[in-house]
Amino acid sequence: MRKAERLFQILTLLRGRRTVITAKDLAERLQVSERTVYRDIQALSLSGVPIEAETGVGYRLHTSFNLPPIMFDLDELEALLLGVRMVQGWSDESLGRAADSALNKIRAVLPERQHHEHTIRPEWLIVPDFYRDQSAPYSRELRAAIKSQSVLELSYRREDRAASVRHIWPLGLVYWGRTWTLVAWCELREAYRMFRLDRIVALTILERHFTTSSTLSLQHYLALQTKRCEEQA
């Protein structure tokens, strides 16, 4: 990696954090020595970038620092566009509008040479939205409940068509290609359960709230699934 690219990467890493980052972490991410990181930080500081250093702690950018809009190459633009179209095609309408708004902001800062419909909206990148309405019902309400850690009363139709009412702790949403699934802690079963969004009949956000922990969280659930897959391999 050339020095200019490395300096840009350091700036990107510093901008993306609210807390400090150590020289060791920077060196590992950039695959260089810590001595090189020290030299790069010094070069950025001498060029006027307000980097704050705490001895024995790490580096961070001063909150007043701002960079002009970042430009993208063609592959990066196509990756962003694909992500936007996936959100528009596979999530709820609210997130779809937000994704389109984000794309318009990106288009607004593109240089003239990239500001063409065939660049930012290639017609050969297609994500069908045939199943959006069926696969993502209640996703807006579920996102709100996950963020606020609110307990839900869920009316659910099981695979055998039997009706079920549960009080659950919503932890995260997982997309499987045709349907969205809610990962939750079920108070009735006292265990993790997964609920397909297209089988939810109704839901109510209750006034109760829950608290996650190292042994009850989305990360813990994913770790258990990873361990299970490794044991079965």
Rank of each mutant, 00 (worst) to 15 (best):
L82M: 10
L110D: 06
T22F: 03
R85N: 08
E190M: 02
D75A: 11
L152D: 08
L110I: 14
S150P: 02
L224Q: 15
A162Q: 15
L197W: 13
Y138C: 06
A191E: 11
P122F: 06
R132E: 10
Q149T: 13
L103V: 01
V151S: 04
L222V: 13
A99S: 14
V37T: 06
A145Y: 01
E117K: 13
I10A: 00
S47Q: 11
D100A: 14
R196G: 13
W176Q: 14
L81V: 10
H118L: 07
G83C: 03
A184C: 03
T179W: 04
H167R: 14
R193M: 05
H209P: 03
A162G: 10
E78L: 05
E230L: 04
L103M: 15
R2N: 15
H116M: 13
R196I: 11
L26R: 09
T215P: 05
R193I: 03
A23D: 14
K227E: 09
T212P: 01
W185L: 04
F72H: 14
A102H: 07
R157S: 10
T22Y: 01
P50Q: 00
N66H: 10
E28D: 15
I70S: 08
D129R: 08
T179Y: 10
S148A: 13
S150I: 05
L30C: 06
F65R: 06
R228A: 06
S213T: 12
R189A: 02
V84S: 11
R228V: 00
D198A: 04
H209E: 02
T22M: 00
D40P: 05
E190Y: 01
L77K: 05
R208C: 03
E141S: 09
G89Y: 02
G16F: 00
R107A: 14
L80W: 03
L173S: 06
W176M: 07
L81W: 09
R178K: 15
H118F: 13
R158N: 15
E34P: 12
G48M: 00
I51Q: 11
V57G: 10
E187N: 12
E123P: 09
G58H: 04
H209A: 08
A79Q: 14
K105A: 13
L61I: 01
L188M: 14
L61A: 02
G48Q: 00
R178G: 07
L44C: 11
T55G: 01
I10T: 06
